[in-house]
Design a protein around this nucleic acid. Structure first.
Length: 424
RNA sequence: GUGACCGUAGCUCAGCAGGCAGAGCGUCUGACUGUGGAUCAGAUGGUCGUGGGUUCAAAUCCCACCGGUCACCCCA
């Protein structure tokens, strides 16, 4: 190969060959679970007005501050490649007036997400998420449904050994109280904090909770769930009752906080131990203020999102069996121009019967055609030369066993269809 | 954005007290004019990540940049 002039962008990936089976597997199962829960797909553009994310995700979040791919288009508009999936779905919900026809509205989506970060295991600049949004219900049963959806999905994909953590960060009121409690707790320990945490003490005190250096201090820090107002406490309690009665294992984490500003009340994460430092497989929660923030009427909602790439890392790590990519079923090898002509016709007829057929497109001799058939992993080959044509037969070869049979030409299509049916 | 380790053939890697760029696998061809996988023989394959510096001489030593990996940060 000559030397490549243009390489792919850092933190992006080409996905092809055997790798694709993981993607198909996840997509198929996610759609299937969505169907069972009656969620319909929402496809939004991969870029949006920058303002959407600033308002939706929050000006002060890391995502908005330093991770967005933002640029000006030729019309001078500020455009951003979507760094998350929820704000666009809510935008589409509002823009298309989808509250008409009754709430709640339930959507799922899958597609690329972009964040400018330094790539590492389980973290890419272009990565892919699947997610759901349940728009319009404040009932804890809605929180329960999205969590159960996520669990059903992971189970169906073939995973176990994941851990569900749930928490509640309350409404705006509870959060204010919690933050001041945190500040109080840390104020007399300020000198023991690491440099980063000293900075975060003022900028984003919630982040002190998952600092790796000051983990010991964080352990006995106040818990969000102890600072909930009556309504929020009741909401969280009910959610737990639903989870308990349906036998879902979870851990309550009073230190669970999330990085996007729109979350209220319920937050949850599903982690897997076989991932490295980026061990969150699915993250989600309730966002009761977002629709209003984007210009709609108050519309409490819940959702979650998960990353394809991280899930695939786990599937590989755990050696989960994934259905193989479909195999080429028949390769037609021909010798001579007349046979080739007949082969073209045969290929067409087989393809009309929904059979996958490949044939020589290189003008190779028989030996090399079979070699190629072997290389593309064809299940069967048909060998047809002028000699066979004259006798009105063709050779049917099983490429796994090497067994050959002569089959009458006018019976060949049926014979192949029969053989393929047996193989299923 | 910060830090550590790493960049040699399509892939995995060797070569690094400076002195002709190598191996295995793969690929192609032949043995085998109409039968793949196995074997054997031959061939193909490289701005040694990029640029600069030191030197008679740099894949090897030094610097910068780019890329990869992992961790921090943050999150899916």
């Amino acid at each position: 190969m000559s030397h490549i002039l243009v390489k792919r962008i850092k933190g992006t990936n080409d996905i092809f060959n055997d790798e694709l089976k993981y993607w198909y597997h996840i997509e198929r199962i996610f759609r299937e679970i969505a169907r069972r829960y009656n969620y319909s797909e929402m496809r939004t553009p991969i870029f949006e007005a920058t303002e959407l994310f600033i308002r939706g995700v929050g000006k002060e979040t890391d995502v908005v501050q330093k991770q967005m791919y933002t640029f000006e288009d030729r019309g001078g508009r500020s455009i951003t490649l979507r760094p998350e999936g929820t704000a666009p779905v809510i935008r589409a919900f509002l823009e298309n007036d989808l509250s008409t026809g009754g709430l709640p509205k339930k959507f799922y989506y899958m597609g690329p997400i972009f964040r400018y970060e330094k790539p590492q295991a389980g973290r890419m600049r272009q990565f892919h998420q699947y997610g759901v949004e349940l728009i319009g219900s404040s009932d804890p049963v809605a929180d329960f449904e999205t969590i159960k959806f996520a669990i059903d999905f992971l189970n169906a994909v073939g995973l176990r050994d994941y851990e569900l953590r749930i928490g509640s960060i309350g409404c705006g009121k509870c959060r204010k109280e919690y933050k001041s409690a945190l500040r109080k707790y840390y104020s007399d320990k300020y000198d023991q904090l690491c440099e980063d945490c000293k900075r975060r003490f003022n900028t984003n005190i919630l982040r002190l909770l998952d600092c790796k250096i000051d983990a010991e201090l964080a352990k006995s820090a106040p818990e969000t769930t102890d600072y909930l107002c009556d309504e929020c406490a009741e909401h969280f309690k009910k959610l737990r009752i639903y989870l308990d009665s349906l036998g879902i294992d979870y851990v309550v984490d009073g230190h669970l906080v999330r990085g996007l500003d729109y979350y209220t009340r319920t937050v949850f994460e599903i982690k897997h131990s076989s991932l490295g430092a980026q061990d969150t497989l699915i993250g989600g929660g309730r966002y009761d203020g977002l629709v209003e923030e984007l210009g709609g009427r108050p519309t409490p909602s819940v959702g979650f999102a998960g990353g394809f790439e991280r899930l695939i890392l786990v599937l590989k790590q755990e050696n989960i069996k994934i259905k193989d990519l479909p195999r080429c079923q028949v390769y037609i090898a021909t010798v001579g121009e007349k046979a080739r002509m007949y082969g073209l016709k045969l290929a067409e007829n087989l393809r009309l019967k929904d059979i996958s057929v490949d044939m020589d497109l290189m003008g190779r001799n028989l030996r090399n055609q079979l070699k190629h058939a072997n290389r593309i992993n064809a299940r069967y080959s048909i060998i047809l030369g002028d000699e066979e044509l004259a006798r009105e037969i063709a050779i049917f070869r099983d490429m796994d066993s090497g067994e050959q049979t002569e089959v009458d030409l006018d019976w060949m299509e049926n014979y192949i269809a029969e053989k393929i049916k047996e193989g299923d």
